[in-house]
Amino acid sequence: MAFSKLYDSAQAAVADIPDGATILVGGVSGVNAPEGLLSALADRGVRDLTCVCDSNYYGAEALHRLVSAGCVSRIISPAPFTGRSDDPVHELWRAGTMTVDVVPWGTLAERMRSAGAGIGGVFLPVGIGTRFAEGRETRMVNGVECVFEAPLRGDFALIRAACADGVGNLAYEGPQRGWNSAVVSAARVAIAEVDQVVEPGGIDPELVITPGIFVNRIVQSSSVPVG
């Protein structure tokens, strides 16, 4: 095949993520996250990443590793702090080397959806009367007070899925779908770490959740040394 989306290793798949890139990371609270890709990125010692993710809770070890390795200078998330004393994000934030943007999760997902869908921005009735609407562009639309939310684009999306076929169609397993399928379309380059790679036709077309058009690179997780 002259053209293939399949990469030999996580290292190869993340090799061109530059300093300063914005990465969109799948998984919720570190569960169903692309751990192999995040580890490979931490090993590379990339600097100054902006990391968009669901949350920084217990279990987000791969993310913590990336943060502790000094790769990340900004986090955009509904919950960037763990609320615990050993939180590496909290520590860096206190030291002034980490910027934190807090965004309600539905709004964050919708902003990425806008980016992936070519929408220039949306008016959402979310967070009115809270600090998340303060100082923002608001307007009444159809009698409803709304906040303008701009698209949020990434350079790379790093996601986890259960299965990919050779053309990049993805299927997930259960809650794996939630945040992984939400971030995948919003980046210039989407990299999927999957448990299984099958031939085209190996996924029932009715069960494809992320069509291959959104997926640029595939890495099989067994080729990923976890650590």
């Binding site: 919950a79 206190r94 965004v103 309600p104 979310v126 998340f132």
Partner: peptide, 11 residues
């Protein structure tokens, strides 16, 4: 902490 804290319940 921080000016915005946690946004988990806003939606």
């Amino acid at each position: 902490p921080g000016p915005q804290g946690h946004a988990g319940l806003v939606d």
